[in-house]
Nucleic acid binder design. Structure first.
Lengths: 211, 211
DNA sequence: CAAATATACTTAACACTGTTAAGTTTCCAA
DNA sequence: TTGGAAACTTAACAGTGTTAAGTATATTTG
């Protein structure tokens, strides 16, 4: 049936138009600026049409959030060429922070806003957060490698991954939500974050002159 | 001038009524539920009257945010009875996480939402974030004590404080914004956070059989 | 004491938001 | 050509923060 097939394609095209328009608005002025009416204006349809292609706004934000993970992957492209897992771990943290500070709007969508998670929940209560799981998996892998090679203290990989992720997330989240502004000079912020991260990872390291 | 004095008091009373009403709405259903119209309904004034006592909604949220810091201080009441700074540091983290998870609405106001910081900025671009500064100061003090007593590796106190605060903030923030839900079983979450924190602090510790 | 002023408060509106029920147009198949 | 499904729109609901303009109520001044 060639006709229904073409129709399917057209449906996907409008879906893409909506996402493109959302992304445009999103990139221009952050997610606060992504409204159904503005999307509709951009694609030159009525606001209600948007609801024929997406259940609600959360679903649109969820799709943008996925694109954020793609962009993040680009930052990590050369990560797996690093063979030393401890060096890789440090770079992971550095890249994570850099991504967050350079793409605050994406970062909020991926790790701060409730909306995308609500969309995920709405899809299916027992479903997975694929993007998050994938990213965390790579962190765990690296940490396990560090432990196996005796580079850091052995321990619960899940718990350690959680704490390291939390540290870099905490830094980015506090920074982009202006909690460091009044406490740390702005021009020293990134350097200080880097210093804190390095200090922590250094302390984790089991150096030769220890034990 | 007894009359103007009484008037001043009355003005403060209405201010308090507004804040009480805000707090009531806030405690009942989170900050999303705090709207000018609902506050006005509760105090039985028109919505515009609220604007005679507060510049805007941000200013109201800023005041609630301050109350959050007071509540947080209660959690830390017995902290300074702990003489060992490293033990105190661990407890600080534990209490911080507990406060955040038990008071997510307050936590969002204090460390996640932009609104209170915007109110602060609106007041005066060069002003301080008193509450945050005070809390961070206590963390720095404890870290400095740890370094001075040779309990942890010496380093930039500001950077280390930042990284430790970031870690516990990261945990709480990811938890209350549902980023752990799909990755960690809910009943194990708190235990895992605690485990991660302990592992990190243990790694920081310069134990006798090291160096 | 009456008029003018200052204070306190309200009404009505603006410009938005997400979302939905109901109605219309368009297109395809019988 | 007509019936029905699919695609799309209009209009509305219920809410948001915020403000200009108007109205009472006190207080101060002539």
């Amino acid at each position: 049936m060639g006709i229904t097939e073409r129709k399917e394609k057209q449906k996907l095209e409008i879906r893409k138009m909506i996402l493109d328009a959302s992304m445009k608005l999103f990139m221009e002025q952050g997610f606060e600026n992504v409204s159904i009416r503005k999307i509709a204006d951009l694609i030159e349809y009525s606001p209600t049409t948007v609801y024929l292609y997406f259940k609600d706004k959360n679903e649109i934000l969820f799709n943008l959030h996925e694109m954020g993970f793609q962009k993040m992957a680009e930052y990590n492209a050369d990560l797996w060429t690093i063979k030393n897992p401890l060096v890789r771990l440090a770079k992971m943290g550095e890249y994570y922070i850099r991504f967050g500070l350079e793409n605050p709007a994406f970062y909020e969508l991926m790790f701060i806003l409730k909306a995308p998670m609500e969309a995920l929940e709405a899809l299916d209560a027992n479903c997975e957060w694929k993007s998050g799981d994938l990213a965390l998996g790579k962190l765990k892998e690296t940490i396990k490698e560090c432990m196996d090679k005796g580079l850091i203290e052995k321990g619960d990989v899940d718990a350690v991954a959680m704490s390291i992720w939390s540290m870099v997330h905490g830094m980015v989240a506090l920074a982009i939500r202006d909690r460091f502004d009044k406490l740390v000079p702005k021009d020293q912020m990134v350097a200080m974050m880097q210093r804190g991260l390095t200090w922590q990872l250094n302390s984790l390291e089991i150096s030769d002159n220890k034990t």
